[in-house]
Amino acid sequence: MEIPYTAKIRPDTGLYNAKLGIWLFLASEIMLFGALFSSYILLRVGAEPGTWPQGLLNVPLGTFNTLVLICSSVTVVLGWAALKMNQFNKYRIYQGITILCALIFMVVKSFEYHDKFVHYFVRLNDGTEMNGHIEGNPMFMTLAKLKQQNKAEFVFHPDAPKADHKEEGNAGVAHATMTIQTADVRKLESWGPWHNTFLAIYFTLTALHALHVIGGALVIFMIWGPLAGMWKTDPERYTNRVEVSGLFWHFVDLVWIFLFPVLYLL
């Protein structure tokens, strides 16, 4: 049995079914991200004055990723326009760039995540607190793991002292490298989501967004590559598929447009 209204407009809605479906799905997505944004607001406003960490994220990398997503958004719409003008080869090029942009975005994001997982907070028994890197840049090191590995000491590269709160982690001149005795350490943890409330909401929001990037890119890739044969058999339906996947991709871009200033700049 043929699926109805995959290409033709349904008279009562004025839309083909997939378009109605994607907009309903996007409506639910708005509520999903809306709930997380409201959590962010609650956590941020509820924090003691002056305690909300700022300057923990890499602004140039975040800006670069924003530009990459904007670029991918325009290639998606240009790809759809190319199909509308019967220019399949142009569509292939534009959507190829979209997929490449998605890959670049994820690679940059993984560098950012890695940077956090090799960055550590250390509290010594005498109350001294420091942020910095352990020699060799191990990921997810903990005090328990150090003891398990029978490491009596480790080399630590502390961050530069804070010039002010907004420049936490990267201001001024760095302290000299030091060797810390494991027995002197009271607490050691990487800058993962467990480290503080800001990083918890940062990882939650950006990881959920990254999952959307991966999902969207996979769908666009499937339509672009393995399912491209439909262009010859049913070009109108194929164009509709490209439009629907494009709508999802633009939504992913929209979410990032708000995430970037909220997490990186404010």
Binding site: S73, V74, V77, G246, L247, H250, D253, L254, I257, F258
Partner: peptide, 9 residues
């Protein structure tokens, strides 16, 4: 967001 939603979408 208005530009993306209004024109691209």
């Amino acid at each position: 967001a208005f530009l993306v939603a209004g024109y691209f979408m």
